[in-house]
Design a binder for these strands. Structure first.
Ligand SMILES: [Mn+2]
Ligand SMILES: [Mn+2]
Ligand SMILES: [Mn+2]
Ligand SMILES: [Mn+2]
Lengths: 220, 220
DNA sequence: ATAAATTTTTAGCCTCGACTAAAAAATATT
DNA sequence: AATATTTTTTAGTCGAGGCTAAAAATTTAT
């Protein structure tokens, strides 16, 4: 069955909300992310349920069905592969690609996306460290830790961000923090939990707790 | 002003129809190419005129304004650049790319399309030999001739096709006719005007007049 | 010059995906 | 347990972009 842009956006957003909770997703939560009103969401949830892509009972919240999740994962796959393309091949910065990928994720061609995957050498993660589902919809396992949870004097590598707003990404860039950067927490300030971090063996710089808790790293 | 997919498709189709005539474009002609009904076209023409993209007086047909042509050219530019990308970088055949480009032509990012242009080395023509407008909207001058208009024993090169339906392109492929092929007309049969053509110095094969008149070549 | 045929427009209707305002249900507070 | 607050749904509306059927204008044929 064909899916409209609107339907794909709803499914993707329900998927994203489901990642961080086991409970059913509320109408309001969906409304906030889709930038629409609750009444519009109720309408669409009925339609998605009708098509068998979500389980929805009024007042009870919503969950993706297996088929709904499959569609959501294919949209996520396309979004993230196009982001890799935009950064790796088109020379965009990681803070510039999300809006364009929001459009490209709706291009409908299985053949194209699989060729793109191959062209990009089957990347496991997008420019923000988010995992890319393979063509079967399987996500690679990534076990990243928040920089804010790290002990002092442990070497680690920046693998991703927990938030990909342009403003946050631009801040990281200004701090010389990009994917693959070698980090070491030199000191955790107990007052505001800010951390002083050495980036690629340079002089340590200060990073707020707010920033540190949105940076994903792997040890070693 | 933002343009919807529907508006872009109408402008592009009016542009295409204007290429082959100096007269105003009729409602029915537009309806046929947009795959809609004449009544729907009338509606849209009023809206496009409202926005200043076409000159339209009822019963008089339609023409693009300068601004309308600018938009149409930018859609054509995107369509053709994406087609080059699909063939050159993604490995599609020339008969497979049009449908996908119909979607990609609506992606809205000036920055992306200019980076894509550079990535592809500023191609002058798409995989069907159609000229690609540059970022100022200027079309390169191409002076191609129809294979059906060629005299016998003249060497030439296949530069494009006058029709890009998948079925026609697949036929050419089966005949070993692709962009850049070196051709020489060995004989023109006066009965049905079919031509016997040597392709890349091979044994001549027979090509119907119908095919020959949709092949664009340049001499030498 | 009329009449016939064709083209185009108008009028009214439909679906999709939004909206607002009001009603109803669920949840929190006293 | 009763009431207040918040969340969600219903009801009605709107614009975009389609449609059909009928009317009007234009073009062609007689
Ligand atoms: Mn993104
Ligand atoms: Mn991303
Ligand atoms: Mn095309
Ligand atoms: Mn083409």
């Amino acid at each position: 069955m064909a899916t409209s842009f609107a339907e794909e956006n709803y499914l993707k957003i329900i998927y994203r909300l489901s990642e961080s909770t086991l409970e059913d997703i509320s109408t309001n939560a969906v409304a906030e992310l889709t930038q629409t009103k609750a009444a519009s969401v109720t309408d669409m949830l009925r339609k998605l349920a009708e098509k068998g892509w979500v389980n929805y009972q009024k007042y009870q919240g919503v969950r993706l069905t297996e088929e709904g999740e499959k569609i959501a994962l294919s949209v996520v796959r396309k979004h993230r592969l196009w982001e890799v393309f935009l950064v790796e091949k088109m020379g965009f910065n990681w803070d510039e690609v999300h809006e364009i990928a929001e459009q490209l994720e709706h291009i409908e061609s299985e053949a194209l996306i699989n060729k793109l995957d191959e062209f990009l050498d089957f990347p496991k993660t997008d420019p923000h460290g988010d995992p890319i589902p393979n063509k079967e919809g399987i996500l690679p396992e990534l076990s990243y830790v928040l920089l804010s949870d790290l002990k002092e004097n442990k070497a680690c590598v920046l693998m991703g961000v927990a938030k990909d707003s342009a403003i946050f990404l631009q801040l990281l860039t200004r701090l010389n923090l990009s994917l693959g950067a070698k980090l070491m927490v030199k000191e955790i300030n107990p007052f505001d939990r800010s951390v002083s971090v050495s980036i690629n063996d340079s002089e340590p710089v200060f990073i707020s707790h707010e920033v540190a808790k949105n940076i994903l790293i792997k040890l070693g």
